[in-house]
Amino acid sequence: MKVNKDGNGYTFAFSIILVIVVGVILSSLSIGLDPLKKANVAVKKKMNILSALGVESTRQDGSDKYDEFIKDSYVISHNGVLQEDLPEEKKAFNLDVQKQFRDKTIEVSDRLYPIFEAEKDGATIFVLPVVGKGLWGPIWGFVALADDYETIVGTSFDHKGETPGLGAEIAQDFFENRYNGEKIADNGQFTPIKVVQNGTGSEEQKVDGITGGTITSKGVEKMVNKTMRVYYKYFSKNK
């Protein structure tokens, strides 16, 4: 039987078969690899939390070290009130703060803020996730606060697609370390930390920005201040 390859019937049949075959291959691949991808994302999150604590970890030992250092985790509301009896997906580790930040149907006042309580060298350290906007897309990270509830002892930042060599440098140690020792409060009052361009970052409440990465640096400033203000509400009530 001779098939007319220019006919409508053949074209439709070929397209339908192609789409079904491709659909089946891709969806089974995606479902098959899903557990691996989820595990990778979870380990990466643990590594980021540990990195803010100043603990180096790899993909292999990330989970073990997380269990070793993180003693407790809980969630507070935008007003700084401890939340209890949350469903599983809103528990501190499972709560996707980036998704919550993107989701415009969630009011700012309804956002939830997780706290990871860690113990390192005998001292309690609070690791707090932060989310914000860079130049090209989302930026996020973790800020570690000492048990005086105001001194930053470590940060780790990451980004989706900031310019390599410029804004993307926020994820480098040299920038993250500039936050160390800064205080988010003075005499019990919240005080923002400025990212500056004039090289005066060594002064109090100031951090040097990144040359050529101004918008991303300012994004970090806004992200840290906005989120720390919420956390400080909780800490000032509970210290």
């Binding site: 192609l18 789409v19 491709v22 291959i25 891709l26 691949l29 995606s30 690899l33 691996l36 991808k37 990778n40 994302v41 990466k44 993909r59």
Partner: peptide, 20 residues
């Protein structure tokens, strides 16, 4: 469709096996 499928396969495999 063929390029797009191959690219998705590459992307999914990278995410699953070499996340870095």
């Amino acid at each position: 469709v063929i390029v797009a499928s191959l690219v998705i396969i590459v992307n999914e495999s990278l995410q699953a096996f070499v996340p870095d």
